[in-house]
Design a protein around this nucleic acid. Structure first.
Lengths: 121, 121
DNA sequence: ACCACAAATGAAAATGATTTTCATTTCCAT
DNA sequence: ATGGAAATGAAAATCATTTTCATTTGTGGT
């Protein structure tokens, strides 16, 4: 798996390092790249295997892929218009680390999202 | 929604308080209970609304329903065995409120989960 | 009891993400 | 070039979940 991997990876980067397979596929289509959905899925799987990307789950169960190592951030999402603000989660990082230690967990990751209605909605 | 809710709830209890909709449905079938899959889903949704059960995601994205205590809490989930520990999220609540105010959001809620490998795995 | 009407039920179809199948294309080493 | 292995992608299969809609059930009024 070689030709597609870099294209998918760079699309994921351009998408802000945080997107679902379907979103990446649609983005590539829109930009005129010729690629199949299957290949996007396979490229993502192989990137996950190589620990280049991370996979989490949206609230609805859809898998979202995230660049590893990248300074990760959290989201403030508007339930009305879908607008999203990237926010810092310093407090969360500490909290997660503390809780994990306290319960003997290793290799921990975390998700944290805030949702509500933005000023406009 | 009245006749089915208690039956679904009691099945979830009997299943150890931790099961997917499909599993609950299959369990009820096996025990000779007459119920439709749709109704199981609807009962679970309504139990979630009433905050009687909690919903998380398996690694494969399937929703799992779980009896939970009253107080709002978060989860520390083992990627290996699925073991779950309920944890306090005091720091998170403050963080969420602060971030929301800062960006003019109202009626905010949040999700936060930590996942990793537990001591046994 | 009886009747009407709203709520609840469930079978079947629809949806949407993800995976599988398989025929075709691309890459490389010979 | 040439053969074979790896990669690709269209279409079909899978699986959880949701929607649709016709039927059943429960309830209140008479």
């Amino acid at each position: 798996m070689t030709r597609s991997n870099p294209r998918v990876l760079s699309t994921l980067e351009r998408a802000g390092g945080f997107a679902s397979a379907q979103e990446i596929y649609r983005l590539m289509q829109r930009e005129g790249e010729s690629i199949g959905l299957t290949t996007v899925y396979r490229a993502l799987q192989s990137l996950v295997n190589d620990k280049i990307v991370d996979v989490l789950r949206r609230e609805d169960g859809e898998a979202i892929y995230r660049l590893c190592g990248e300074a990760h951030h959290h989201h403030l999402v508007c339930k009305g218009c879908g607008d999203t603000v990237e926010i810092e989660g310093g407090a969360i990082e500490k909290w997660a680390k503390m809780m994990a230690e306290e319960h003997g967990f290793r290799e921990v990751g975390h998700t944290a999202e805030i949702f509500g209605l933005c000023a406009k909605c």
